[in-house]
């Protein structure tokens, strides 16, 4: 408890807590749909695009969020379109985008600011990355994502469970897929500087996969994964403070431990 009080006396840690909890919530809600729709890799693809956008934004002096959010939204649109047309398979397209964007980002960094500790921060995340102005944008955007998710919950369930049925019976399934993609892109960009490019997609995948070990109802899957996401984030952040380990990594390791705990519960139940 005293650790917690000590932590909230640092403004940058308070910012990290606020944004982290909101972003973890958004990511875990969207994650249930993405995992079930077989879009688990979309988070990875988008975070690498976000990395490239950050790398380009810094030397140009543009606020990184303003550049990377639109770029990621466009990338999410493209990824979904490619899945539709299927000349190149969706997973291959994600792999192309992922390495392509990473290469562009690394090249830009080495030509401008040069490879330094910043690159390490981009890759693995840093809680110091949150400035005051970032805090405002992040809080507003993640609350918008949360509200939209709740309002569209029934539609998101329908297109996740059976897109063909939804489209056949007069629901604009493609529109709701796009809404999911846009919300995902925004969430990824908001979370990636704290979690790091390489680790952000864990926020999407782990909580929902963990919740699915024990849940039999979609609504409870979503709620349990949201609770797990916030819990694991908080534990991870505290551990990272106590043992001076990178935040992203310490959150992911917490996620892994909880995942195996739930896996064990599932196995015991099946007996």
């Amino acid at each position: 408890m005293s650790t917690l009080f000590e932590m909230i006396s640092y403004p940058f840690l308070v910012r990290a807590f606020i944004v982290g909890i909101l972003v973890s919530l958004c990511a875990s809600l969207l994650g249930s749909s993405l995992v079930l729709k077989r879009y688990s890799m979309i988070g990875d693809g988008l975070s690498h695009v976000g990395f490239a956008a950050l790398a380009i934004a810094y030397p140009l002096g543009i606020s990184p969020l303003w550049l990377s959010i639109p770029v990621c939204v466009i990338a999410a649109f493209l990824l979904l379109q490619i899945r539709e047309s299927s000349r190149i398979r969706g997973d291959a397209a994600t792999a192309l985008l992922l390495s392509g964007a990473l290469a562009i980002g690394v090249m830009t960094i080495s030509l401008t600011t040069g490879m330094n500790t910043d690159v390490c921060n981009y890759m693995f995340g840093s809680i110091l990355a949150m400035s005051k102005s970032d805090l405002h944008i992040s809080v507003i955007l993640s609350i918008v994502v949360l509200i939209l998710y709740i309002l569209f919950y029934n539609r998101i369930f329908a297109v996740t469970f059976d897109e063909t049925f939804a489209a056949a019976t007069g629901t604009r399934a493609q529109t709701y897929n796009m809404i999911i993609a846009v919300l995902t892109a925004v969430t990824i960009v908001l979370g990636m500087r704290m979690m790091g490019t390489l680790l952000i997609s864990s926020l999407i995948v782990f909580p929902s996969l963990t919740a699915m070990r024990v849940c039999r109802r979609f609504l409870s899957t979503v709620i349990v994964s949201a609770v797990l996401a916030v819990t694991c984030f908080s534990i991870g952040l505290i551990l990272s403070y106590l043992y001076s380990i990178p935040t992203g990594a310490s959150i992911v390791v917490t996620d892994i431990v909880v995942f195996f705990l739930f896996l064990a519960i599932e196995k015991i139940r099946e007996r």
Partner: peptide, 20 residues
């Protein structure tokens, strides 16, 4: 294929038919 591991109850699935 996706429905084979989908966590959803019968009532949730049936109700989703009312979406339109």
């Amino acid at each position: 294929e996706a429905q084979k591991d989908f966590p959803a109850t019968v009532s949730e699935v049936v109700l989703s038919g009312c979406l339109n």
